[in-house]
Nucleic acid binder design. Structure first.
Length: 991
DNA sequence: GTAGGTGAGGTTTTT
DNA sequence: CCTCACCTAC
């Protein structure tokens, strides 16, 4: 894209023609680094008669870079030689070494390489082996595993083995014991040691699990190669064979990789590394902030060559980028100043808005203008620090009809894909009512929102009446047999389809079924004149790109898993998602002439004529620092002293530098300044040279528009239902029509405390749960909670009858009522069960000796606040005096604090109910935390209760106005309505 | 000044 | 759920 000079410039030539020996090429952004490294390979081959192509190895980090380098070397040195030069990623090179050993071929062939997601799944499937204590969480057993994987990856990057870590922990213990002996023992030292010992233990067990599974992580591969090369014979062999080593993007290497290089080049020392210390942005995945220093240490005789002529950017862009990076105090090469022969160009423009919505609108407008002034869309790129920052801009681009492509966006938000997974789930588990509901929204059944709501409500009523748990599909099966019911015909159609599809699954491999399902959902058979869908005649080219990606994913899984059926795949899929797995769209599937949106990380190594950088605000860019749950101990780091400056901020600054130096012709920076949102420190860095800034930059203050962009506006609620080929349920959820026409709007609204709390967290969730009355499967936390309530009731019943009794009697009741449903696996169930039993025991021990003052348990109530009927049930009422009572709410799970109790709506509602319908004075309100066995007592004043009544009326009013917008929040990933939520229709799923 | 309450906002990702 | 910035109250 930029004019590559036919001849090398002086610096480049110096780098290329440097004599053999350790060479460090510091190549600034846009200085022709890849060209230099290829030329250098060619030069070494031409100048050293003894050096053959097979003696040269070039290492990169990504497959993409490998391909590019191989192609360039090919073009430069011709067919025969190029085929022999080893061009590899670090990992494929290490794997090759292992494979070349005697017996290695077989050993490596039987070794599966696991990415983080598959490693997570391996650990999750054997979590009982980890025997987690400190890091165990009943409700989220897998949560810790991500942190563990991150930790292990760091350990491998730093060449810290299990044994190394164990000795570290031992040493810590000894140190602590010594301190204790001299009376200096810190109070939380033992707590800390418990953690450390657990980390050491799980590191060991996880390593054993990998070995048993015949699997390796990426970090493993490198450390194994290092171990191999520590053998003198092996090392000598490779040192003789590989006599010229070239490394690209050297600033991204970690300690283990540098050690690998050192072992390889130790004797001949003919190693060339190319990189830019100012573009080191992968510290979080182990890249050493000190790679360059370590190179200097291991190859002290090294020579340094600098490339400073930039062929990419205009002078102004370059000057401002230089100005930014100059602020970093800990640069390896502080005197590097990039220059260019390109013209001064346009000023760097800074947009300053007072709302994020205005930022998005203003940038979209400018993008439109640039296009109309003659720029093709694909000249434009928008970069951001975090993916979340793109959402409003997407809305603004959509509004203007600007074509865009989001690099690496997930296909899992695609409505067709969501249909596909709901269908796969539903046909595997017919009682999955939420998946069923999504399918009811397909237009082929001709069901209306009213119909669906009626079916779902009917299910809810039957659920209350029956002791089992009838599902939506059970209810539909009944109706299909009831010819008199008005929905009979439509329902029958659905039930028959389901039965036919369900039959298809049994005995068929998952991938075949997925394909058939994709054809089915694409309404293909309708277009083909009613032909039944089979997988074999549905070709990939016919599928929508997103669906095709998913089908390919399932096929790849199938290949590894023989003839495994659909249920088996879905079991894997649940884990895959929980592990944070994703299926990204392929770039070539997206419109080519379009504005590109990507993270700054994804933009590294790329260049664009016009670049926009979003959200330069404190906390967004730079992000705030967040240490990992399992920080890698300082003492085990093999690098030198940490630099004094703020490492995190410096890395963020380099990231900003990378973003800025992507621009060729024009650079736009954008910030938002409003209460609590301050402009980024980086803007101050740019401004710190006032004269420079006023010469090279132009500030554009964006006038407040007052407009609001809806980031979830992928769905157009005004769209004609019949034009929607995928499930219409998410669209319906956004509409504010009454879900049932028969319900008069004046009917008294009934609300429980939890309904009101649900509405406050997310109105759409309220609509699903309380308007449609949809319910997913039982969750472990709720089932166990309900059982504990039963047990407590039983406890007081026994106490009333016999005054004293053995715990065994209560335990027997507990065991008899335990139901094994809804748990992720047997181990989680066992842990829950043990935990629940412990709680019960504690409760028994504590309460058996106490006098029973229980007036009532599970006391239902109903009272009015204005035109709302508040309904609910009080767990327990204790008599304090003839007028006063105490109201208790039992809590399993996380113990509630005093603050929780003081503000909890449920307790306020209890207090109101007590006065209004029980006519007693609620002198005490309490959470009884079963986990800790502690009671947290609180009270409510008249004034407070008055306020709570107001709150209830407020929520009721909003519900009456029928506004149910989805509200994205921290808990979305856990929400049972995720698969039908309008906020994630067409959007990446939450992580 | 600081304690305590309130509200908003909450990474990046290759092999 | 957890952290941080900012506000109010002493």
């Amino acid at each position: 894209m930029h004019p590559i000079p036919i001849r090398l410039n002086l610096e480049q030539e110096a780098a290329v023609k440097h004599p053999a020996g350790p060479l460090l090429i510091i190549a600034g952004a846009g200085t022709g680094k890849t060209r230099v490294i290829t030329e250098r390979a060619a030069y070494l081959l031409e100048s050293e008669p003894n050096l053959k192509p097979e003696n040269v190895v070039a290492l990169t980090f990504t497959e993409r870079a490998t391909e590019e380098m191989a192609a360039r070397i090919h073009a430069r040195v011709g067919d025969r030689a190029a085929g022999k030069v080893h061009v590899h990623t670090f990992h494929s090179f290490a794997l090759k070494l292992l494979r070349e050993q005697p017996g290695g071929e077989e050993a490596v062939r039987n070794t599966e390489l696991l990415d983080n997601v598959d490693f997570w799944i391996l650990l999750r499937r054997h979590i009982e082996r980890l025997r987690l204590e400190v890091f165990w969480k009943n409700a989220a057993p897998g949560q810790f595993l991500r942190d563990l994987i991150e930790f292990m990856s760091r350990a491998h990057d730093e060449l810290v083995s299990v044994e190394d870590y164990e000795s570290y922990v031992e040493a810590l213990q000894l140190e602590g014991d010594a301190a204790a002996a001299s009376g200096l023992q810190a109070a939380d030292f033992q707590e800390q040691m418990k953690k450390e010992r657990e980390i050491a233990r799980v590191y060991r067990v996880a390593t054993e699990l990998l070995a048993e599974a015949g699997a390796r992580t990426f970090g493993d591969v490198i450390t194994a190669a290092v171990r191999l090369l520590r053998d003198e014979g092996v090392r000598r062999h490779y040192q003789e064979r590989l006599r010229a080593i070239l490394v690209d993007e050297f600033q991204d290497t970690n300690v283990a990789q540098i050690e690998l290089l050192h072992l390889l080049a130790g004797s001949h020392r003919n190693i060339t590394v190319v990189g830019d210390d100012d573009q080191a942005i992968y510290r979080f995945r182990g890249a050493s902030f000190e790679s360059f220093n370590m190179f200097a240490q291991k190859f002290p005789e090294f020579q340094k060559v600098k490339l400073t002529q930039n062929y990419r950017s205009t002078q102004r862009i370059l000057r401002m980028s230089n100005q930014l990076i100059r602020v970093n105090p800990d640069r390896f090469d502080p005197d590097k100043n990039l220059w260019t022969e390109k013209p001064a160009g346009e000023p760097v423009r800074l947009f300053e808005s007072s709302e994020p919505d205005d930022e998005a609108l203003a940038l979209a407008e400018r993008i439109d203008q640039l296009h109309h002034a003659g720029r093709p869309w694909n000249h434009l790129a928008v970069l951001f620090r975090a993916r979340r920052h793109r959402e409003l801009l997407l809305a603004a681009l959509r509004r203007r009809g600007i074509p865009f492509r989001v690099v690496g966006i997930s296909v899992l938000g695609d409505p067709q894909v969501r249909d596909l997974f709901s269908a796969a789930r539903f046909f595997s588990w017919l009682h999955d009512s939420i998946s069923c509901a999504r399918l009811l929204g397909l237009r082929r059944w001709n069901l209306t929102e009213h119909d669906c709501a009626a079916l779902s409500r009917r299910t809810s009523e039957q659920r209350k009446a029956a002791s089992g748990r009838p599902s939506l599909f059970d209810v539909m099966t009944d109706l299909a047999a009831d010819a008199a019911h008005p929905l009979n015909a439509k329902v029958k159609l659905f039930v028959e389809w389901t039965q036919a599809m369900h039959k298809q699954i049994s005995g068929r491999p998952a991938a075949a079924f997925f394909k058939a399902l994709a054809a089915e959902l694409a309404e293909r058979q309708a277009r083909m004149g009613g032909m039944p869908a089979t997988d074999s005649d549905y070709h990939a080219e016919e599928m929508a790109p997103a669906v095709r990606r998913v089908v390919e994913f399932v096929e790849a899984w199938q290949k590894k898993n023989g003839e495994a059926p659909l249920k088996h795949f879905l079991g894997y899929w649940d884990l895959f998602l929980e592990a944070g797995g994703d299926v990204p769209e392929k770039e070539e599937e997206q419109p080519q002439d379009s504005v590109r949106l990507m993270t700054v990380h994804a933009a590294k190594g790329l260049e664009f004529p016009m670049v926009f950088v979003l959200r330069l605000t404190q906390g967004s860019f730079p992000t705030r620092e967040r240490p990992p749950l399992l920080p890698f101990p300082e003492a085990l780091r093999k690098e030198g002293e940490l630099p004094l400056g703020n490492i995190h901020l410096q890395e963020e600054r380099r990231l900003c530098y990378v973003a800025m130096t992507r621009a060729q012709d024009e650079l736009y920076l954008s910030t938002v300044v409003k209460p609590r949102w301050k402009r980024s420190d980086f803007l101050a860095d740019l401004d710190s040279n006032r004269a420079l800034a006023s010469r090279e930059m132009e500030k554009i203050v964006v006038a407040p528009s007052g407009e609001q962009l809806d980031e979830d506006a992928v769905l157009d609620p005004g769209r004609n239902e019949n034009d929607i080929p995928t499930s219409r349920l998410p669209y319906w959820a956004l509409r504010n029509a009454r879900v049932l026409p028969s319900e008069p709007s004046h009917k008294t609204l009934q609300l429980s405390a939890s309904a009101m709390e649900t509405y406050s967290t997310c109105p759409a969730k309220y609509k699903f749960a309380y308007e449609y009355k949809l319910a997913g499967g039982p969750s472990p936390a709720l089932t166990v909670g309900a059982l504990m309530h039963e047990c407590i009731r039983e406890f007081f019943a026994m106490k009333k009858a016999r005054d004293t009794f053995a715990f065994g009697d209560l335990q027997q009741f507990f065991e008899g009522r335990w139901r094994s449903i809804g748990f992720e696996d047997q181990y989680q169930e066992a842990r829950y069960r043990q935990n629940a039993l412990d709680q019960l025991r504690r409760f028994y021990d504590k309460n058996l000796p106490l006098p029973a003052a229980v007036m009532a348990q599970e006391k239902g109530f109903e009272f009015s606040v204005g035109d709302v009927t508040v309904i609910g049930r009080i767990d327990q009422i204790n008599e304090l005096s003839s007028t006063d009572v105490e109201l208790i709410d039992y809590k399993t799970g996380r113990p509630r604090t005093q603050k929780d109790a003081d503000h909890n709506l449920q307790l306020s509602v209890y207090a109101l109910a007590c006065r209004e319908s029980l006519h007693r004075h609620p002198a005490q309100l309490a959470f009884y935390n079963l986990e800790s066995g502690e009671k947290v007592v609180t009270e409510r004043s008249d004034a407070q209760l008055q306020l709570e009544r107001q709150k209830i009326s407020d929520v009721a009013r909003e519900i009456r106005e029928r506004r149910f917008p989805p509200r994205k929040n921290f808990f979305c990933p856990l929400c049972e309505f995720l698969s039908i939520c309008p906020a994630f229709e067409g959007e990446s799923p939450p992580q």
